[in-house]
Amino acid sequence: MRGIVFTELMEMVEQIYGYELVDELLQEVRPASKGSYTSVGNYPHQELVNLLIRLSGKVDKSVEELMTIYGQHLFQVFAKGYPAFFEDDLDAFTFLAGIENKIHPEVRKLYPDAELPRFNILNHDSKELIMDYSSERRMSSFALGLINGCFDHFNERATVKMDKLDESGARVRFTINRGA
């Protein structure tokens, strides 16, 4: 998993709870990378999950909730860090619908070893966007946070419904409707 996900998580935890909690997490989880994360590095996915589980126990929020909150935060970071993807006159639906075909190919150029989820667009009109998420990492809550972050960025409102398409959560359908 890209280093930025780890460094931003640590950053967010530090901002909300202080570095003590960051230190606590790393001391307790003892990841193989020793917690010396850098945004240009690449780290095992399981380390993130372990960190989130440990965090969940400390801040009284479920892992899913944490993922959603973190996703929403991370979108802002991406928007600032990669303004090239936001140059065109976009809206949230168009941006989300273009992830698979516009954003991911560019990511793969920069990081050929990146493992990305797949988004399959089932419907895209002015009112409604239906997209299916599929990833063996089962991080649909993280995706939900990113979607929410997206609407925040474009300053739009929408209701997002998330339905599991299988037991494991590897496949999930997002039904997004414009408005509050």
Binding site: Y19, K34, S36, T38, S39, V40, G41
Partner: peptide
């Protein structure tokens, strides 16, 4: 101690980042 650990972590992160960037 926390600070020491932080410094160590950040130094190591810097080393790693530097080596990664050099390689790149």
């Amino acid at each position: 101690e926390i600070l020491q650990r932080r410094v160590i972590r950040e130094r190591e992160a810097r080393y790693e980042a530097e080596s990664l960037l050099e390689k790149k």
